[in-house]
Amino acid sequence: MRSRTRKLSLIAVGVVAATFLGTAAAVAAPAIDNGWPYASAAKAHDDKAYTLAAVGDIACEPNDSDNAGNPAALKCGSPSLGGYAAEFATAKQADAMKPDAVALLGDEQYQVGKLSDFEGSFEQAWGGLKFLEKPAPGNHEYYSYTKKGDNEAGQNGTGYFAYFNGHDQSGAPNTSGQAGDDTSANQGWYSYNLGNWHIISLNVECNSAAFNNDCSTTDNGLLAQETTWLASDLKSNRQECTIAYWHQPTFSATTAATSTVAASAPGAGGQEGQVADAWWKLLYADHATLVLNGHEHAYAHLKPMNPDGQYDPKHGIPEFIIGTGGEALDTLAKNADGSFANSNVVTGYDQGYGTMKLTLKEHSYSYSYTPALAGAGQPASALNYSDSGSGECK
Results as ranks from 00 to 15, higher is better:
Thr51Gly: 10
Tyr367Lys: 03
Leu329Ile: 00
Gly195Ile: 04
Gly154His: 04
Trp280His: 15
Lys43Pro: 14
Ala125Gly: 10
Gly154Asp: 06
Leu8Cys: 08
Phe88His: 05
Ala153Lys: 15
Pro313Tyr: 06
Gln378Lys: 15
Thr5Gln: 13
Cys215Thr: 01
Arg2Ile: 11
Gly294Val: 03
Lys361Thr: 10
Lys334Asp: 08
Asp46Val: 06
Gln225Trp: 02
Glu87Ile: 00
Ser176Lys: 11
Ala262Cys: 09
Glu392Leu: 10
Ser80Asn: 13
Phe340Ala: 10
Ser381Gln: 09
Ala185Lys: 11
Asn139Leu: 09
Thr5Gly: 14
Ala125Arg: 00
Ser191Val: 01
Ala24Glu: 10
Asp286Arg: 14
Ile243Thr: 04
Trp280Pro: 08
Lys114Val: 03
Val261Pro: 09
Thr260Glu: 15
Ala336Ile: 07
Gln310Ala: 14
Arg2Ala: 14
Lys334Ile: 09
Val345Arg: 05
Ala101Pro: 00
Phe20Ile: 12
Thr90Cys: 01
Gln187Arg: 15
Asn335Val: 07
Asn213Asp: 02
Asn220Val: 00
Ala253Tyr: 09
Leu194Val: 13
Phe88Ser: 04
Asp330Phe: 10
Ala372His: 02
Gly127Asp: 05
Thr146Lys: 15
Gly159Tyr: 03
Asp57Ser: 05
Gly106Asn: 02
Ala26His: 08
Leu8Ser: 13
Tyr142Ile: 04
Ala42Phe: 11
Asn139Arg: 08
Thr254Lys: 05
Glu226Val: 00
Asp387Thr: 15
Asn193Val: 01
Asn70Gly: 09
Ala68Asp: 09
Thr347Pro: 03
Phe161Thr: 00
Glu133Val: 10
Arg238His: 12
Gln124Tyr: 05
Gln274Glu: 13
Ser184Tyr: 03
Ser121Glu: 00
Leu358Pro: 00
Asn63Pro: 04
Ala253Val: 06
Ala12Glu: 08
Cys206Ser: 06
Pro79Gln: 01
Lys75Asn: 03
Tyr163Met: 04
Asn196Phe: 04
Val291Cys: 12
Gly120Met: 00
Pro62Ala: 05
Glu87Asn: 06
Ala268Tyr: 10
Asp95Ile: 00
Ser201Asp: 07
Gly69Lys: 07
Ile321Lys: 03
Ala253Ile: 09
Ser9Thr: 12
Asp219Leu: 02
Trp126Gln: 02
Ile58Arg: 05
Leu223Trp: 09
Val346Met: 12
Glu108Gly: 07
Asn34Gly: 06
Asn151Thr: 07
Gly309Ser: 08
Glu362Ile: 05
Ser366Leu: 07
His297Asp: 05
Gln378Asn: 05
Val13Cys: 13
Glu119Ser: 04
Ala262Tyr: 13
Leu10Glu: 09
Thr324Lys: 02
Gly273Asn: 11
Gly14Asn: 09
Gly120Ile: 01
Gly157Trp: 04
Tyr110Met: 03
Tyr284Asp: 12
Glu240Arg: 14
Gln155Glu: 15
Leu332Met: 13
Ala209Gly: 10
Leu222Ala: 00
Cys393Arg: 01
Leu358Gly: 02
Glu123Asn: 15
Ala91Leu: 01
Val16Tyr: 13
Gly113Arg: 00
Gly171Ala: 03
Thr260Pro: 10
Lys394Trp: 04
Asn186Thr: 01
Leu383Pro: 00
His287Trp: 10
Asn156His: 07
Asn220Ser: 14
Gly166Glu: 06
Ala172Trp: 05
Tyr190Gly: 01
Tyr192Asp: 11
Arg6Leu: 12
Asn384Val: 01
Ala94Val: 02
Ala185Met: 03
Tyr385Trp: 15
